[in-house]
């Protein structure tokens, strides 16, 4: 079926059929937190590339949390590696919208 032939998004039909009014609270909360973290990373590296410890310092988040999100954002093309410091840390810059 091509998109134009579809009347209603199947996700809405699914929700009606399953009686889903709201997605699980914990999941929504996870998404909210993840969005905040991504926005903080974006703000930190949108203008100048930074290493994971530098992003952590600016955002107040743990370095391992930053790396996990940076790796995820790399996968989706929202972040790019720029250069490596003498200490062996890559600098990352925001590439997305």
């Amino acid at each position: 079926m091509v998109l134009s032939e579809k009347k209603e998004l199947t996700v809405f039909t699914y929700k009606k059929l399953k009686g889903i009014k709201m997605p699980p609270k914990e999941l929504v909360e996870k998404v909210r937190k993840a969005t905040i973290i991504q926005n903080k990373i974006k703000a930190a590296i949108i203008n100048s590339p930074k290493t994971v410890p530098e992003i952590a310092k600016e955002t107040g988040l743990d370095t391992h949390v930053i790396l996990w999100y940076v790796a995820t954002l790399l996968r989706y093309g929202l972040v790019e590696k720029v250069e490596k410091t003498d200490e062996g840390y890559w600098k990352y810059i925001w590439k997305g919208r």
């Binding site: 091509v2 998004l9 996700v11 039909t13 699914y14 059929l17 889903i20 999941l27 998404v31």
Partner: peptide, 21 residues
């Protein structure tokens, strides 16, 4: 299990491949 049913995927899919049914 991890879907919040926002429908974003279904809106952007250029081939209409997504089918919650």
């Amino acid at each position: 299990k991890n879907c919040i049913f926002c429908g974003q995927c279904e809106r952007v899919c250029p081939t209409g491949a997504i089918n919650f049914l």
